[in-house]
Design a protein around this nucleic acid. Structure first.
Lengths: 333, 333
DNA sequence: AAAAGTCATCGAAGCGCTTCGACGCTTCGT
DNA sequence: ACGAAGCGTCGAAGCGCTTCGATGACTTTT
């Protein structure tokens, strides 16, 4: 290695300067650093991975084109990449459709040191494989049986409850849920049912009636959903919307039913904060903290990698921000 | 290597079976394949990269959170990943914000064999660096001086022209452009001005008046944009919308001006096909062929990598699909 | 029948790093 | 004042592959 020659040290010394794994005198270290800078030296990633059995790469498995939560996915991804870079790791992108084989491939070939898997289903078929892998692995989402796997997610049950609490406090007695597309429930993506059960539990406690309706991510889907909801429970005065994609169309569709937000219909959205704020009506929302989740996922990965941290589950407490879309129902009884 | 032992051959033979770089007898090859399967053997990526000077990884540089074209970006990304996997390569994700340093790092450390860079600006500061890199590199987008760099993009000038042609054919004489957010123009992201100039040129040819207005990706932004457009050119009977994010709100905002789509206002959207079709009114659109672009980018990368193909520029011809949002102006003179 | 190819395979030399043990030197405790 | 302990550095042995030249066993050519 010519950096070593330029700095008049052995190549092992250069390595130790770079890794800090052994003490090096200040003068030597500086000499080496200068040589590195002068020669624009970058260690060869392959050689490094081979010798150290560490690639400094994290594999991130993203859903291909599931539902239309694309902006949320992208937020996750950038958060993960940014955080990973800060920890001196790179991110390899895998899509869902390589399935279990892709996970095995990446882990067994030592392409990546660890995995982060998004969009985990309640009984995800990848779970057993993931448990068998050498590489540590963090799930974003919460399967039914997370034993042995690290998970991080928003506490959707608490989020559902929080939404109901807020509305009940305002005086609402009948709430509708505009849910996710059917595909999401069929896929048994655990967050959707978790939200519903949290919502129902809280509603029971507070004596609030609840109607639940899935909702396709199109204009017509939303029309159908709202129509159904109001037919089923006409006294509905508030909506919880767990579908980012239909938010833009919501006020329009409600207007078709002579409902104004928030005067004759309150709305709590479950969506990222920035999305809540950029509509005709800014929506009171419970944040989907994509950035935090991504960042925490990387932290957990690094913890397992460096410190052999155990595989714990973290559910983030929901945060509700009051904006312009919720108020007291028109005729409080 | 124990696959070699199991198949009773030398490790070089295993390598040749895997790479096909030398003839191997059918029997031996089968023996080796079986051993590989039985032992679930996966070559170590680091060792392979080191020995062959090829990592089989493509670096993809995505814009961090530029504008709200997020779904389009995601389409690119999945297209690139899918296509790359088909060519036995993986994709490493870099964000814009690592800048030039990131490009150099990835290339010099041989982490990736090639780069694909999205969201290239007219006078992108990364250009000179990219030209200096060892690694071949493909831009998605079209800088002012693409010399020496491979580029692929939609022909936005032709797209602008095509939109005007379509509207002029229907009888429209005054067209407004709902443009991108100011940030995009400030960044000099070449596609936006290219669309405008193509649109203006065609308009001049066809004797159509054009008003151009940038548009922030919020409800209020759209309101302001449309108001401005109609104030400036009240005889406007058609809109070209080059901003996916405001499409959902468009019909609502136009209604505030007593304009219905397409009866009293025709609309051509520049957006991905799936986006055009899932609104209250399905929009006549010129497709942004994200999937094709991503796929072609990978093809070009592989061409440069395998065959030493030259760095050419490819501009894809725009395709307009007529849907429900365009028609003849109300009072053709 | 000898020379010249082919074909399928092997052995060994790296690829550019990290890491372990060793070594010489200084400092400390007693 | 002498052994123990610590510090800073070096040399060499890999890490697990690919690849090049070599080698036999055959086949074809002359």
């Amino acid at each position: 290695m010519d950096v070593a020659r330029a700095a008049e040290v052995s190549s092992s010394t250069v390595s130790y300067v770079l890794s800090g794994k052994r003490p090096i005198s200040k003068e030597t270290a500086e000499r080496v650093q200068r040589a590195i800078r002068d020669l624009q030296y970058r260690p060869n990633a392959g050689a490094r991975a081979l010798a150290s059995a560490r690639s400094n790469v994290i594999a991130l498995v993203v859903p291909l084109r599931a539902g239309q939560n694309v902006p949320v996915v992208m937020e996750f991804v950038t958060a993960v990449v940014t955080k990973a870079r800060a920890a001196d790791h790179d991110v390899l992108l895998l899509t869902q459709d390589e399935g279990v084989a892709g996970l095995r491939r990446v882990s067994a070939s030592a392409l990546a040191d660890a995995l982060i898997v998004m969009d985990v289903q309640a009984d995800d078929p990848r779970l057993t494989t993931l448990r068998q892998l050498e590489a540590p692995c963090v799930l974003i989402g919460l399967p039914d049986r997370p034993t042995g796997l690290a998970c991080v997610d928003l506490d959707f049950a608490a989020a559902g409850a929080l939404a109901v609490e807020h509305l009940a406090d305002l005086g609402h007695r009948a709430v509708g849920l505009v849910g996710q597309p059917a595909a999401v429930y069929e896929r048994k993506t655990s967050y959707a049912p978790r939200l519903i059960s949290g919502l129902r539990d809280a509603a029971t406690h507070r004596g609030v009636d609840v109607a639940v309706q899935q909702c396709e991510s199109t204009f017509e889907g939303l029309q159908a959903c709202v129509a159904q909801l109001l037919a089923e429970q006409p006294e509905t005065t508030a909506l919880v919307v767990h579908n980012e994609a239909v938010l833009p169309a919501l006020t329009t569709v409600l207007l078709e039913h002579r409902r104004r937000v928030p005067a004759s219909m309150s709305v709590v959205a479950i969506c990222p904060d920035d999305m809540a704020a950029t509509h005709a009506v800014s929506f009171t929302n419970i944040a989907i903290p994509a950035e935090d989740l991504g960042s925490i996922a990387v932290d957990m990965v690094m913890g397992q990698l460096e410190a052999g941290a155990p595989a714990e589950t973290r559910l983030l407490a929901p945060v509700l921000t009051v904006r312009a879309s919720t108020g007291a129902p028109r005729k409080p009884r």
